[in-house]
Design a binder for these strands. Sequence first.
DNA 1: ACCTGAACACCGTTCAAGT
DNA 2: ACCTGAACACCGTTCAAGT
Lengths: 218, 218
Amino acid sequence: MATRTGQDGLSRERIVEAAIAMLDDGGESALTFRALSTRLKTGPGAIYWHVANKEELLAAAVQATLADVLRSDEADTTPRDAVRALALGMFDAIDRHPWIGGQLAGLASRSASMRIIERLGQQVQALGMPHHHQFFATSTLFSFILGVAGQNAANARARVAGKSRAELLGAEAAVWASLDPAEFPFLRGVAGQLGDHDDREQFLVGIDLILAGIGAAR
Amino acid sequence: MATRTGQDGLSRERIVEAAIAMLDDGGESALTFRALSTRLKTGPGAIYWHVANKEELLAAAVQATLADVLRSDEADTTPRDAVRALALGMFDAIDRHPWIGGQLAGLASRSASMRIIERLGQQVQALGMPHHHQFFATSTLFSFILGVAGQNAANARARVAGKSRAELLGAEAAVWASLDPAEFPFLRGVAGQLGDHDDREQFLVGIDLILAGIGAAR
DNA sequence: ACCTGAACACCGTTCAAGT
DNA sequence: ACCTGAACACCGTTCAAGT
């Protein structure tokens, strides 16, 4: 009867924790109920006592992963800096856990999405956007974040299947550099920038561009 | 020997066409090699003679679906209108085939993505953006489009599983309207706008916002 | 050259049976 | 109350065998 305390019993918390660890190092395809139950030294059926199904498990993993970002508070900064801080918090979480990008748009992440949109919206409001444009401006910020997250998730999937980020980026830059200049003048011209850009900086430039647009529309 | 002409033989073209039809009315989960081969009156193995695997099939479906958008030409308009036209073309294609949103970020859609980025980039260049900012500005437009596409795909997944777009949107708006006003002042305030907004208009506002930001940064 | 269909190695999920 | 593990109804993919 000594085994009922501490780490021994299965719990929703332990399951979610293990799921996140598996997602982090094997991507979404690595998370199966069989592999998960092996890691937790149980049968696949046991997990269903604590979690309704895989969708709920993924939702809980997203929630747990985004919890600190959503807990952060930038009360005493400008609206602009608050948006940047929140967006960068999202970026860093997505960078650490790229599988989030494949989940964030879905129904499973609804409550996390709502909190993010709320926070963005409050700052857009504080920026002085007219009321009837606040919703669209906030959606634009959110959609952009979602798009970057999705690309991150796709890149991570490719990475799991093979090479590193630097290798993939270098290969892609080489492809761009060797394109037909008549058909792809732009891609050829920016191939160098693709090769050595910083994802985080690129993300922040996008946020700033949208903020500049909001400033102009105000 | 009369059967070798016309529609009778299996072909990559017929397979992709059937795949698109299945994706359109059942979503990504409806496309299986078994269901596809049943529809084409063959065995699952037959498809592999024409298509390497599911990833390649999805890539071909994306390519075929986006072909007309990529063929369109807005030579004699302003750069701004060209971006808007291209973006709206993408939106309409994604609206008709929402499963694209789940594919566009992936490696399978690389060549389609390259063409889109090329077209966007040429217009960003024409807008007078300094060279070293063109790549980031173009990426911002592309990421935003990707984000909207991803949301569309997620919404369509929910729709296949149950109710219509209007019902889902109405239910979500009702949830927003009933949130705690202390915790979610913004969402509560825009619940009405969520309920009856037009997705296409919202998308275009986002594009315009980014274009305004590009204009300000020029 | 192209197609057939059984077989392999997986999935998520359920559920009678145990403790 | 919680866990076990076999079983069900699927997947994508392969491949010997056919025509």
